[in-house]
Amino acid sequence: MLLAIWVFYAVYFSPTQGWTFFLQLTVDGIILGSIYALIALGYSMVYGILKLLNFAHGDVAMIGAFIGFGVLTLLGGPLSPAIPVVALVACMFVVAMLGSGFLGLAIERFAYRPLRDAPRIAPLISALGVAFFLENSVLLLFGANYRNYDGYDLISYNGIHLGGSAGVFVSYLGVMVITGALLLMVGLVALVRWTRFGKAMRAVSFDREAAAMMGIDPDRVIATTFFVGSALGGAAGVMFGLVYSQIYYLVGFLAGLKGFTAAVVGGIGSIPGAMLGGLLVGLVESWAKGYLNGNVADLVVFGILIGVMLIRPQGLLGTPALQKV
């Protein structure tokens, strides 16, 4: 409600920029939001099944971005690709998703599985340690300088003009990111809803002990969940690199926080919630960047998080947490 008022106010009273500017920001926000939604899905799935905030998830996405960059460099770089661009991009996504998926598996195995029955605070601290370890390892190995993805050089500078040349511009890269994110989300929903693994995952997240008694191996289901969530994070990392053209070792921290905000705003543990939350966070950030300024945008996003958590702690689409005794 407040959001709607603010958006209307901003559009109505901005002196030079009309609705075109607003729509342009909205399109950018949707592109950004689909990346955040992918990151949010990883947080949400892990929280749904383990009730654990995986702080390291943003950094897993960062590693995905670096793996994608490695593939890009190996295959000739953005300016002179050795194989057709479509194949190259597909390669980047597949390798990055596999790489971060296996990283997620390893993290689960070594940082979280030993703490399955520990007090709640222990895996959280362990997660902090993992995040810090990943960030600084990348800093150690690859240095602090930016790596250039040059996504627009790689794909295309062109795009679709909606409403004439003065209208809203959607780059082909943006179209690709939105389509890719949508495909992955549809795939995930199908996986969770219609496969045996999805059924097992829902069962474990509902009641781990009862699921174990029904012959489901919770450890395997949890590990697979980590794999899928981290792979989505890796894909988000590559998309982030393509859209922003630059990555460096701290890129996962802020993107992770925003993805996390998205998961919480949508209702942590809920998959449609994560998508909605991602979209919302992307839109708000884009609008705030357009109408206020870049620095304040982060604060606005944080403010929304705190506001949502005060008014509706379970998030927009979440169900209120029942405390079992």
Partner: peptide, 27 residues
């Protein structure tokens, strides 16, 4: 060959490992 050139980064890597290892072995 690597770590001693950047001790300032190494220490953060080590603290990260320390947190994980302590939580797993001696919380």
């Amino acid at each position: 060959n690597l770590l001693i050139q950047q001790p300032a980064v190494t220490r953060y890597v080590l603290f990260g490992v320390l947190l994980i290892a302590l939580m797993a072995t001696r919380p």
